[in-house]
Amino acid sequence: MVFNQDIIKPENLVYKRTNVLTDAVMHYCPGCGHGTIHRVIAEVIEEMGIQDKAICIAPVGCSVLAYNYFNVDSQGAAHGRAPAIATAIQRLYPDNHVFTYQGDGDLAAIGTAETIHACNRGENIVIIFVNNGIYGMTGGQMAPTTLIGMKTATTPYGRSVELNGYPLQITELLAELPGTYYVTRQSVHTPAAVRKAKKAIRQAFENQKGKKGTSFVELVSNCNSGWKMTPVAANKWMEENMFPKYPVGDIKVNGEKVSK
């Protein structure tokens, strides 16, 4: 018989929360992917030993308070402007690791110009894009990435093409720009997905270290509150509905589009 207290010893530790996250309890809804994505980014920063060089630009949206959770110097951006802010800091401090953390409304609606031009200039920044197809913070309104037919507070009968146009695949669009060096789409809803996402985020920060240009990591994520589902059901719905429109995998690696 083995007792737990025999196992729970410092020498047997295989996983604990990284210190690159602060002790603050995150305000995210239970099961929200933001928390997992924060943790994975923080783990990459810890493993690369760049906590003193990392600067986080937080968006407006659910992750508006991301700067309270990342234990790195941080700035809160106006809605959609994070890539412009990151551009300036990275140019003024070229050896630092400036990254933006943005949702779909922030990055792909109100901040489209800032996103596209930062990527097109090939700014040496990391952009983390969390796509859950909805505006979570303001109460579940339509996002640029909301799927056709999907019900939100501002598409109560489902998104219609006639009324609202098409879901924006901004990640594919950005991969077309010569300034982007690495463009990938990942998720964090299973252990395997988390491992892959972490590898991708690590790759993005490594690219930045090598001053390769813009690295863009989309994370397709859930919004169980906005989607009005349990966290587990939301993850399943995401696999079945979001992934066909937003397929997971690398889109551009080392400046070259990945052939499908």
Binding site: I8, Y15, M26, R39, T190
Partner: peptide, 19 residues
């Protein structure tokens, strides 16, 4: 001690040990 649970935990509340 595979840490799969900790890996997907959004709030990072799980610490894992293995021997």
């Amino acid at each position: 001690g595979c840490a799969s649970c900790a890996m997907v935990c959004p709030d990072g509340v799980i610490t894992v040990y293995k021997t």
